[in-house]
Each structure stands twice: as C-alpha cells, then as structure tokens.
Design a binder for these strands. Sequence first.
DNA 1: CCCCGGCAAATTGTATACAATCTTTTCCTT
DNA 2: AAGGAAAAGATTGTATACAATTTGCCGGGG
Lengths: 223, 223
Amino acid sequence: MTDALKSTRSLNVTEALRELLLQGEFDPGTRLQETWLAERMQVSRTPIREALRVLAKDGLLEYAPNKGYSVRRFSLEDIVSAFRVRSVLEGLGCRLIAERGLSEALRATLQSTLQSGENLLQSGQLERGEFDEWREMNKAFHLAILLETHNELLVRFAKQSRNIPIVFNGSFRWYSLREFQRAHDHHQVIFDAMNNQQAERADFMMQEHVMHAAHILKKNYKD
Amino acid sequence: MTDALKSTRSLNVTEALRELLLQGEFDPGTRLQETWLAERMQVSRTPIREALRVLAKDGLLEYAPNKGYSVRRFSLEDIVSAFRVRSVLEGLGCRLIAERGLSEALRATLQSTLQSGENLLQSGQLERGEFDEWREMNKAFHLAILLETHNELLVRFAKQSRNIPIVFNGSFRWYSLREFQRAHDHHQVIFDAMNNQQAERADFMMQEHVMHAAHILKKNYKD
DNA sequence: CCCCGGCAAATTGTATACAATCTTTTCCTT
DNA sequence: AAGGAAAAGATTGTATACAATTTGCCGGGG
C-alpha cells in the first residue's frame, strides 16, 4: 500500500496552523512570532518558518521582510471578490464537463450527492446544528465536477479561493430551509445541464449558485 | 520614501530560481539537491529550502517528503489548460471593468498601449528579434485591466497562471506579422467593448484573445 | 542469476547557534 | 520637557550541527 501518511513536522505544522487560521483562532492583525508559535507547537523555529511562508503565499498571512508575519484581515469586499473568482472557475469546470459529456462515473457520483441532498431536505433536520452532512455532500458535489475536468490549475485555484476564514466551513449557519432547498435546486439544474451537454447553461447556473452563496453571506456578515 | 528594495537572501534566491525555471534552465524531471543549489547560489541550505517550498507551491517544482524536489514537466495539455483558466480570469476582469465603466486613468493607460502597438506594427520591425517592446506593451495592457478590478485574488491567479516555462515570455517567437495584427485588433475590440460598457462582449473577446494565443502555441509546440 | 538483508553513503528534516535587523528604552542635549 | 542619538533587548535571517530517512552498494543465500 502507498505510504501517503508519511509526513514531516513542517507539513504537519503548516496544516495545523492553516486550520487554526481558517477557524478564526487568531484575530486579524495579530502578529505571529516564530518563537511563540514554536513553543506552542512543540517544534523548533525551522518548521514554523516554512509553514509561515507557505501560508503567506496562500494569502492567509501578511509578511514583511525582517518584520515577520501577521494574520490577514479579510474585508467583506475581499470575500465577495473571492466568490466572484470562484464562480467563474467552477463555472468553467461545468462548461468543460458539459462540452465533453458526463462520464458514467461522474454521473453516478453526482446522482448520489443529489440523493443525499434530497434525503437531508426530507428529514427536515437542517434547521439545527448538524450541517456537517450537508457540508460533506456539498463539497463532494463541487469537488467531483472540478476533478473530472482534469485541469490541475483549475482545481488548485478553486480550492485556494475557499481558503478564507469565514468562507471555509461554508456559511450554512445563515441558511434557512428555503435556502437549502434553493441550493439543492441549483445542484439539480447544474447536473441536468451537464447531463444534456448544455455548456452555457451549466456554466451560468454554477456562477449563479456560487454568487447566491456570496449574496447570503453578504446579507448576514457583520464586520 | 518606501524601502521596498529591502529584501532577504531567501526572497532573492526564490526569485532567482524562479527565473531559471521559467527560462527552462533545468530539464523537466531534474532533481534539485539542496546542497548543490546552496553551493551554486552561494548561500546556506536554509534560504534554499524556503525557496524550494514556495516554488513547489507555485507548481514549478514537485515535492515528496524526505525525497526532495524535482523540476516539473508541463505537457502541452497542462499548458493549454492553464490558458483556458487564464482566459476566464482575464475575461472576468474585462467584464468587471466594463460593468462599472472605464476610469479616466485606465482609459489613458490602455490608449497609450494601443498606440504603442500601432507604432510597432507600422515600423514593421516585428519580424526580427525585438519582441521585447511588444512583450512590454502586451503585459502593460493585460495588467492594467487586472489591477483596475481591485480584485486581489483575480490578479494573483491570473499572474500565477502564467508561471509556466514556455508561456512566460509570451510565445511571440511563433508570431507572424499577421498574428501581431490580429492580437492588436483583439486589444482594440476589447478596449472598445469596455469603453462602451459591453461587459459580455469584453469578456468574450478577451477569452477569444487568450485562447487564440493558446492555439498558436499548440500549433508550434513540439514536445 | 536473482533476491534481499544490511551496512555505508548521501540526502533531507530539525534543532540550535550566531548574525543582522528592528524595536524599545535610556539618557543626554537643547 | 521635547527631541533624538545610542545602547540594550527582542525578533527575524542565516549558517551549521545533528537526527532521521532514503539510496546505493555489497555479499550471502536460495
């Protein structure tokens, strides 16, 4: 079997820190000192430094030579801008899939996620705290489309455009049942469009879908 | 004045190495050993390692834990895929500008680059080796549009999607006078569309423009 | 001849020591 | 008291030493 579980402290620290940042553990503007982090993470400064550099490149931290790193502040405008970028990226993904036609594997995967969505809506449990299943279903739907494009850069950028604290978990906490239903409808239409090789329609609806999420966030986000 | 010229060895090495990779100095698949690089660059392994990690994140190198870094191989398909992504990103840039209307500053900048293009075409010098002016003009045109969107992620992704060895310098070496004229025509139409707030047209034409460059590269690229 | 265990060399990962830079405090001058 | 040079402290940048892991080689067993 493959030894994909092998890793290094540097990589582990990078992901641990990224998680903390995405969960909003540190206030924006906070300076992250290497020695302090090193002590907290129980490693030396070396892996810490490598992690910080990567996270800065990901846009989660700001860096100034000889000054160090600080937690980036995301304005509402930054976040909406990121959604707009993601919308055209995922829209392109749908377009590419629709143009070449759905593979059997992808059709099966997407139908499965649609069924999951249906079940979740039927159960009526979506008003309480168990958004996790929905989150998982949603992620599976979007990721399956992206991966099927076999466009590595597209996948990378689409993933990266979600590396923003408030956005990362999906902003489902604002969703009413009505909103979940609408999202599910979007998914169905997007699937139908791709399934019928309607590239323009698939692209457009995916953009609509993503920007609607941005719209909801915009309405509820207080900065 | 600002001290933007301050830097560190780590940053310098990163950019120097990036330049070497973009110029195709190393064959794809080549393993880049830290000690070897350190000796060549006259620094210790520490800044080398930080540079390698960043360049791997940029997609120029491949990395495996405890194995090291090697120069990534870009297939023709990889390159065309990157163009497709860039086309929708820059298309979105044009759309955003067109929707809100051209600022005076941007109108002036773009008209200036168009005039430069006009002059270069008139001089008829474009068949020989001095593509540099054209390259500069082209870069100014595309970058001015991107920056005016004030969408940081859009700018970052669009720039990053050009960080590919063959692509980076622009593939103007394949261009005939006819191709330069066509590119110039595209620029003019894109400007006109934005100037008349024709968002859809501006977006579409920019995509056309970028993908035509991909088309030319595809015809001439031998792998 | 192949295989494979294990030792040796090479290479990467991590910690730490030292250098350079920035920040803060002190204290002198005006 | 205000200003500012200069020293002290803190923090980042770099080099190097050491640890862990991988790679290559050698020899023995099948």
